[in-house]
């Protein structure tokens, strides 16, 4: 079995089964984006004909694309699996945390609070996520089983060595583990897998017309109720698609006419800009933005 997609798939299924075997209360974090959709697909391969040994959990920032939320609900229903949704809005109100401000008010860092609350509410000891090492250089240092302390914090200098196919998920009470089964996949691998497996996705990954505001970094941000426009803003109508499905307040669209998975693969082979570079505003804050968020409990 030397085909690379089959090797990556086997590795991910192995990690998912280890998670189910080693933890009492795992959960799969599901956003309706392509990476988590692939995770669900892999989980079905790992555990059918049984039920998934974990619920699907979504931390809803309130700034999600409606298309992604709809897709999320439909998929959970079609599969007959449990979906738990917790809202950042509720956490902010209950704990009096100030909401995100500014022209593009990203709740991306704030969702860590809700994630940690949800982990506590259900006593999850492992949370499976679709983060990939190729996304970002701090993520390139992540383990498959990433142990977090009682505060959800990541300590990159004290990571457990991970060898062969052996994953040490032993933790003390209160700690939990973030599990990343598709660590070794790249953006292009995901798309090649979606093509091979004929996986259904939400419509915003494919070309559509959208009204966008052009940001100072020449990024296209869809106009929506959460962002503040002013008179200097340049508003354009473009044929776009999304490379990642994050919040509407911090995820930019890319100009594209790609109408099928094949088109997208062709487009990605020729692009010169990275996935997060093309689409995320939140990583531009500093060179170590991701490392700092992860140390604080983020994925």
């Amino acid at each position: 079995m030397s085909d690379y997609l089959s090797r990556l798939e086997a590795e991910a299924i192995h990690v998912l089964r280890e998670t189910a075997g080693q933890f009492e209360r795992p959960a799969l974090l599901f956003s309706g984006g392509k990476d988590s959709i692939c995770l669900v697909h892999l989980a079905l391969k790992a555990f059918r004909p049984g039920k998934l040994p974990f619920p699907l959990v979504h931390i809803d920032t309130g700034h999600n694309f409606p298309e992604a939320l709809q897709f999320r609900d439909q998929l959970a229903e079609k599969l007959g699996e449990q979906l738990i949704v917790r809202h950042v809005e509720d956490t902010l109100k209950r704990r009096g945390i100030p909401d995100a401000k500014g022209k593009f008010p990203s709740r991306n860092p704030l969702q860590t609070h809700t994630l940690l609350e949800t982990i506590e509410e259900f006593g999850f000891d492992a949370c499976i996520g679709g983060a990939r090492r190729d996304e970002e250089k701090a993520r390139a240092k992540e383990r498959f089983f990433s142990v977090r302390d009682e505060f959800g914090q990541w300590d990159p200098k004290l990571q457990r060595p991970e060898l062969w196919n052996i994953y040490n998920g032993k933790i003390h009470k209160g700690e939990n583990v973030r599990v990343f089964p598709i660590s070794n996949w790249t953006e292009l691998d995901i798309w090649n897998y979606i093509l091979r497996e004929n996986i259904e996705l939400t419509s915003i990954y494919f070309t559509h017309e959208r009204t966008c505001v052009l940001t100072e970094h020449e990024q296209l941000m869809a106009t929506n109720e959460f962002i503040t426009l002013d008179e200097h803003d340049v508003i354009v109508n473009r044929l776009v698609r999304y490379r990642t499905v994050g919040d509407m307040t911090c995820t930019a669209a890319v100009e594209s006419k790609a109408n099928s998975v094949e088109d997208i693969i062709e487009e990605l082979k020729n692009t010169t800009v990275s996935e997060r570079g093309a689409t995320r505003m939140d990583d531009r804050v500093s060179e170590a933005a991701m490392e700092d968020r992860k140390k604080g409990g983020y994925f």
């Binding site: 390139a140 240092k141 200098k157 070794n184």
Partner: peptide, 8 residues
Amino acid sequence: TIDVAYKY
């Protein structure tokens, strides 16, 4: 380099 970095 402190830790293993994976590149693709």
